[in-house]
């Protein structure tokens, strides 16, 4: 699999499993889970620093930005203005123009506000950002995001943190067929088979956080996800057999008594 690299906007990625860094017990567990997952892209959020507790540790003390691609998100932003502001802050705090753009439309579902997403993406692309948009499983919106210059799209499998797996495989398949940029399935994965399935459909990568961090044994689940994504990718490239209603014997009839 070493030659099977994922390329987005001229950047090469080794792993097709991307992971979030939220919800872990502590930074030690975060680091261990991410190392085990084999991921080389990690998402982070941008928030106020704690100025009262000066001994508070920094996430980047545990995740070396030289070793990982740090992908800041605009999670928690419900308006175009907020998402653009957080993206700019992320760029100022970091080292790259990459942003995982989220414009959230609703608190209960955390579904994206796709109209706001397109508007925010347009503004940020004009400012030189590499915008990776967290979007709905809507092929039309995905194509619009590509048309305005997003070098990849990140459709959800299911609501963030829901663990429901791929709710709309047919829409996902249409997106995979119609857009000519990498597709990263983002959010909603519950267990290893969900990730494998996304990769078997032809997704270019899978991004997850809660499925690993929220598992009873996060480190073990990180390992499971690593293999699931690799297995799914290999199966996709190998080409599955067609589904048939009736049996086809795999042992020859010839030579039977």
């Amino acid at each position: 699999m070493s030659d099977d690299r994922l390329t987005i906007a001229g950047r090469e990625f080794r792993s097709r499993l991307w992971v979030g860094t939220g919800k872990y017990k502590d930074f030690v567990e975060t680091k261990k889970a991410i190392e085990t997952s084999g991921a080389d892209v990690v998402t982070v959020a941008v928030r106020r620093v704690n100025i009262t507790d000066r001994n508070s540790e920094n996430l980047l003390d545990y995740l070396d930005p030289k070793q990982y691609t740090i992908l800041p998100n605009t999670a928690g932003c419900y308006t175009v203005e907020d998402a653009v502001r957080y993206a700019r802050l992320a760029r100022a705090a970091g080292v790259s123009d990459l942003v995982k753009l989220e414009v959230i439309g609703d608190e209960r579902t955390l579904f994206p506000d796709t109209a706001g997403l397109i508007e925010a993406a347009r503004i940020l692309i004009k400012e030189g950002f590499v915008v990776l948009p967290y979007t709905n499983d809507d092929p039309i919106v995905a194509q619009k995001l590509v048309d305005i210059g997003c070098p990849a799209v990140m459709p959800l499998a299911a609501p963030i943190g829901s663990g429901l797996g791929i709710r709309n495989p047919y829409n996902l398949k249409i997106i995979l067929e119609t857009v000519n940029v990498p597709v990263i399935v983002d959010a909603g994965v519950g267990t290893a088979s969900d990730a494998a399935l996304a990769m078997e459909y032809g997704a270019d990568a899978v991004l997850m956080n809660t499925a690993i961090a929220g598992a009873r044994e996060p480190i073990a689940m990180a390992e499971a996800m690593k293999y699931a994504v690799e297995a799914g990718r290999l199966a996709y490239k190998a080409g599955r057999i067609p589904r048939k209603l009736y049996a086809t014997a795999s042992s020859p009839i010839e030579g039977m008594l």
Partner: peptide, 11 residues
């Protein structure tokens, strides 16, 4: 003044 940095986060 607002001072921000990266913290753990997913989607």
């Amino acid at each position: 003044i607002e001072i921000l940095s990266f913290i753990g986060g997913g989607t």
